[in-house]
Design a protein around this nucleic acid. Structure first.
Ligand SMILES: Nc1ncnc2c1ncn2[C@H]1C[C@H](O)[C@@H](COP(=O)(O)OP(=O)(O)OP(=O)(O)O)O1
Ligand SMILES: [Mg+2]
Ligand SMILES: [Mn+2]
Length: 836
DNA sequence: ACCTCTGGCGATAATT
DNA sequence: AATTATCGCCAG
């Protein structure tokens, strides 16, 4: 075949890669990147890189002969010849140790699977490595071309119509000859957010009624349902088919680099695809006239060639949401918190019901509202994208994987890729993922010992200081050089060791080598970045910076967790357990020193110490902090978290011990930090949460409980008089698995079954809402659990809400002040012991 | 197909 | 009636 990829015109340009894929051109696998030039031209860059994997030879064999044998592998596969192109003997490192390995270059990355299978049968072969590295990842690593990092490209411009063997809608296509990192330019965010309204929620049922598109200045609503006095953004089309065509047309005209949805992997795009199929429309949203494609699996990812489809819901769900206050991560809640705007309120159920029935009646005013509602969703999504962009981009740069992957990734993926993308400079070959049986065995391993948590003495404390280690366990990994490749069974001079601790039923001690390992090294660099981000957040607090700091902190902590993760390439529960053992040693030591100094240590969880200042000063506390820090090894550092005016610690409900992981602290600025209490839990009703919140606030601000008690008595009275609004009595519990797989059928499971019967969309992951209604109190609670709609005003179970929701939430707090449950329930404002 | 880890509280059902 | 198992969610 004559090459069509030559090109004539020499070009030099600066380019930012946004989207990556690979494809065969002229019989060779090419990387294809889509992005922008520094002149803001839409650009496609083609490049190649070697496809290869590694073979480790058995000891004592003739390497040259082995290499020659491997080099001869050739077979027919998928209607082409899969063969080894060349084999090189290389000096590499594996798990930190020098090793001779064969680098096996193959004709096509897709052939690695079949070729490695043959090579594995050779008696000379000990192991195969890096056979599962994605070709895009391979390219990013070997050519040092990173997602969202500008590169200078020198190459040949290809004539799109004559020389490029695929359709491509960009301003320029370049075959790269040379490509290297260069200075940064501004990237103008060219994107479109979209949202679809349909007559049904289930993919494959119903039809699309309306689609909205939005960016910072473009607003558009498309619908086939005609009505008068439509807002100016609305454009009417003939039918659903034309609606889909028009949607595609707008995307092709506006040419966004990013297509952004909220839950669009789970709903909008699968639904759109189903409807396009039904209408015999080819759903082409990308740059190469190809169909929208989906990755397989329970949570499919919708990929569009040349545009980065970002489902913000997945990023928020996996990475971003942890620092948010919002009760759910619905678009409404997240947008409200981050941009201060909400969805429009409409009766969606009514409208979709009317739209489903052939004789449905919808008023023009309702359709207007519906259109604006749909548009607002797209607008919120677009604003959210701009808000989250920086975090997405930063994380993408840290792990060097494409935005498409990073925006959908969980922490394990980020951890793994942060390591993989840094191996090259250590000349390291990547370890393999576990296979088959190994995974099962790892999953069944016993838990190792984790953190130390001190039992607090329940009381109200004045002037509380809180110390907390910065990135504690990651700093232990770095300071003690802990990782699977640096783990030793015996002590090495100049190396590191753990205290003795119980592991796998035996007293053990582990050792780590002196020579810095690549994982501790990579983590050290991440910690430096995280330290900067934490400082930036302290200087200039914002929810977005807080989320970024949290993501980097958690990426570091998940690197510790990765050691004990069954799917890890660098798996070592011994390391996980060593880290926690060292952490227990240092937190005990820290507690001891603070006590020796004369402070009363109230509580400690993992890496924090809370103590009462007593008759000492904040200056004294800072002094001991400095003293402790002088004794800490490596990069470990204890930080002053804050000084608090007052704090409360309570008993467990059983009343025998002080409750761990439950406390509240009043800061000097009036803010109350609540941890573990029902007030911060999703699965309690609002009335119980709010009541507890008020009680904590009152007792902390006043240092006594009389006003708080009066408040609770008032609330209980209203509950008894059936005055509590149903919304505040709704209990929300997540259905964590398929309904059938529950062994214990709690109220939320039973309600989920009921919802399913009513045709409501319920599946694993749904948040089930229910109210306990009045009924036979001798029966199980689940028998009284009803959908909120089914409970009329005042129809709730008074005793349940008093005995099971409100009183349990406040009784341990009042117990600190000597007030009993009976006093709360009977409303007798008796004098407590302290007042005699 | 994918999944960071352990410690802990408390609600409810299930079992004895 | 008391104890144990299951479940969800949170702290770190
Ligand atoms: N999500 C997590 N996964 C695994 N381990 C965790 C996680 N969160 C906390 N830990 C462990 C490791 C932490 O170093 C340790 C103390 O937690 P914490 O004080 O909240 O964070 P940190 O010490 O890592 O950062 P910070 O500087 O914010 O205090 O507990
Ligand atoms: Mg901490
Ligand atoms: Mn900490």
């Amino acid at each position: 075949m004559e090459s069509t990829l030559k090109g004539k015109e020499q070009v030099k340009l600066d380019f930012i890669p946004l989207d990556f894929d690979y494809l065969d051109l002229d019989g060779k696998c090419h990387i294809r990147m889509f992005g922008r030039t520094s002149e803001n031209k839409r650009c496609c860059v083609l490049d190649t890189t070697d496809a290869y994997f590694w073979l480790f030879p058995r000891a004592g064999i003739d390497l040259k002969k082995y290499a020659e044998k491997v080099a001869k592998i050739s077979l027919e596969h998928a209607s082409r010849i899969a063969k080894v192109e060349k084999v090189e003997i290389k000096d590499k490192h594996f798990l930190g140790n020098p090793i001779k390995a064969l680098q096996v270059f193959v004709s096509n990355p897709k052939d690695i699977a079949v070729i490695k299978d043959i090579a594995k049968t050779f008696h000379e072969t000990l192991e195969k490595k890096e056979t599962d590295i994605n070709f895009v990842t391979r390219y990013i690593i070997d050519k040092n071309v990173k997602p969202l990092e500008w590169v200078h490209v020198e190459g040949r411009e290809l004539n799109q119509y004559i020389e490029v063997p695929f359709d491509v809608d960009t301003d320029i296509v370049v075959m790269a000859d040379e490509i290297k990192p260069t200075q940064e330019h501004e990237l103008k965010l060219n994107f479109l957010a979209f949202d679809i309204e349909s007559t049904e929620f289930e993919i494959g049922k119903g039809e699309i009624v309306m689609i909205s598109l939005a960016d910072h200045n473009f607003h558009k609503v498309l619908t086939w349902k005609k009505y008068s006095n439509a807002p100016e953004e609305v454009e009417f089309v003939k039918d659903e088919a034309e609606l889909i065509e028009k949607f595609m047309k707008i995307i092709h005209e506006r040419k966004p680099d990013f297509l952004v949805g909220y839950f669009s992997d789970g709903f909008d795009l699968p639904y759109l695809r189903a409807r396009a199929e039904q209408n015999h429309i080819k759903l082409d949203l990308g740059l190469d006239k190809s169909n929208l494609s989906f990755s397989r699996g329970i949570m499919p990812s919708a990929k569009i060639t040349g545009r980065v489809h970002i489902d913000l819901y997945r990023f928020v769900n996996n990475i971003f949401a942890y620092t948010l206050q919002s009760p759910t991560i619905s678009l409404n809640d997240v947008a409200k918190e981050l941009i201060g705007e909400e969805k429009l309120e409409i009766d969606l159920g009514h409208i979709t019901k009317e739209l489903r029935s052939t004789h449905g009646k919808i008023k023009d005013a309702e359709m207007r509202r519906f259109s604006l509602y749909n548009l607002q969703d797209a607008v919120l999504t677009s604003k959210l994208f701009l808000k989250l962009w920086n975090n997405l981009a930063e994380l993408t740069k840290v792990v060097s994987e494409p935005l498409f992957e990073v925006s959908r990734a969980r922490y394990a993926y980020l951890v793994e890729n942060n390591i993989l993308h840094n191996l090259k400079r250590f000349n390291e070959i990547a370890a393999s993922r576990p296979l088959g049986e190994e995974i099962g065995e790892r999953r069944e391993r016993e838990k190792y010992i984790g953190a130390f948590v001190k039992e607090p003495r329940p009381d109200v404390y004045e002037k509380v200081a809180v110390f907390d280690f910065r990135s504690f366990w990651p700093s232990i990994i770095v300071s003690f050089n802990i990782s699977m490749p640096t783990l030793l069974e015996k002590k090495e001079s100049g190396g590191y060791e753990t205290p003795e601790f119980e592991f796998d039923g035996k007293k053990r001690k582990f050792y780590f080598q002196k020579q810095e390992g690549f994982i501790p090294r990579i983590l050290k660099e991440l910690l430096e970045k995280r330290k900067e981000t934490k400082a930036e957040f302290k200087r200039n607090p914002s929810p977005v910076l807080e989320a970024k700091d949290y993501a980097l902190k958690t990426l570091a902590n998940a690197t510790y967790g990765y050691f004990g993760f069954f799917g890890a390439r660098y798996y070592s529960p011994e390391c996980g357990a060593s880290i926690t053992a060292i952490s227990r040693y240092y937190i005990h030591k820290t507690i001891d020193e603070i006590e020796k100094f004369g402070f009363e240590v109230i509580y400690s969880d993992t890496d924090s110490v809370m103590f009462a200042l007593g008759n000492k000063t904040e200056k004294d506390a800072k002094e001991i902090l400095e003293k402790i820090n002088k004794t800490l090894p490596g990069t470990m550092e204890l930080e002053l978290e804050n000084f608090y005016v007052r704090g409360i610690f309570v008993m467990t409900k059983k009343g025998e011990t002080g409750a761990k992981k439950k406390y509240a602290l009043l800061a000097k600025d009036g803010n109350i930090k609540i941890r573990g209490f029902e007030a911060v839990r999703r699965d309690r009703c609002d009335l119980a949460k709010e009541t507890q919140d008020v009680v904590l606030k009152k007792v902390l601000e006043e240092g006594k409980a009389d006003n708080a008690l009066a408040y609770v008595i008032k609330i209980l009275k209203e509950v008894r008089e059936k005055k509590a609004p149903i919304e505040k009595l709704i209990i929300r519990t997540k259905l964590k698995k398929a309904i059938e797989s529950y062994e214990a059928r709690g109220p939320h499971v039973v309600v989920a079954e009921k919802m399913l019967e009513q045709g409501l969309p319920v599946k694993a992951g749904s948040l089930i809402e229910y109210v306990i209604a009045k009924g036979n109190s001798k029966e199980r609670i689940r028998e009284r659990a009803k959908l909120p709609d089914e409970v009329e005003k005042g129809g709730y179970d008074i005793d349940y809400y008093i005995e099971h929701q409100i009183v349990p939430a406040v009784e341990t707090i009042f117990a600190v002040f000597g007030i009993t449950k009976e006093q709360i329930i009977e409303g007798k404002k008796q004098k407590n012991l302290g007042e005699f």
